[in-house]
Design a protein around this nucleic acid. Structure first.
Length: 207
DNA sequence: CATATGATTCCA
DNA sequence: GGAATCATATGA
């Protein structure tokens, strides 16, 4: 159904290492509107590339950020999180959902940006839902098998945004345990997109 | 080895 | 509102 994409053109617009070598707050904002390209499916190579446009992100800023997994130091799980910028950090949450993150800042910094939602562009069911970290990772097949993958190389990489989107900010979702850090406005999203995930409602009457 | 707890989603 | 479901971190 969706139009064929020119893989060579996509590859040519890949984001380079230096793009990721910035604070997670900067990368999280810049990532909204960018494309995620996965040239291989779960089968390991069948089908067209899966392409989606990011509409929602969250910044996680290293050991001092109590909502960031880097607070646990270097473990088998946080190995890629604490590695070089521009790599995938994928982990399982709640025993069933995988979360896809992009490492940034620099080696050992523990900065990462969580991709929380995107809209389908190509190679996906036009009606596919990619709102919510679990749905995004499942639809794009960005599983833990890709943890530690270098995002400047195929089969999984990011491309610069075709157009500059509007950006809205809010507190991060699901990190109430992190005390003062939970209140920081480190979630970035395109308010004009219907694909943005909705935070759990803790109160009613918000319209 | 045992156990508490999530960077969530789906159903009632 | 509450269950599903398990890797991870932590402590014994």
């Amino acid at each position: 159904m969706s139009f064929d994409v020119d893989v060579e053109s996509l590859r040519a617009t890949r984001l380079v290492r230096g793009w990721y070598a910035r604070d997670a707050l900067v990368v999280a904002r810049a990532l909204v509107g960018c494309l995620v390209v996965h040239e291989r499916g779960e089968g390991g190579g069948e089908g067209r590339p899966r392409v989606s446009r990011v509409v929602e992100t969250e910044a996680y800023r290293g050991p001092k950020d109590l909502a960031c997994h880097a607070r646990a130091g270097l473990t088998r799980r946080t190995r890629s999180l604490l590695g070089t910028e521009g790599h995938a950090y994928v982990f399982l949450v709640y025993g069933m959902h995988e979360c896809f993150n992009v490492t940034c800042a620099g080696e050992g910094m523990g900065h990462a940006v969580l991709v929380r939602a995107a809209e389908p562009v190509s190679g996906l069911d036009p009606g596919a839902r990619l709102d919510g970290p679990g749905r995004f990772a499942r639809a794009m097949a960005t599983s833990r098998a890709l943890d530690g993958h270098d995002l400047t190389r195929p089969p999984l990489y990011l491309c610069g945004r075709p157009r500059r989107p509007r950006i809205a900010v809010s507190a991060r979702v699901g990190v109430a345990y992190a005390g003062d850090w939970a209140a920081r406005l480190w979630r970035f999203y395109d308010p004009s997109s219907v694909h943005v995930s909705r935070p759990p409602k803790k109160s009613i009457g918000l319209g």
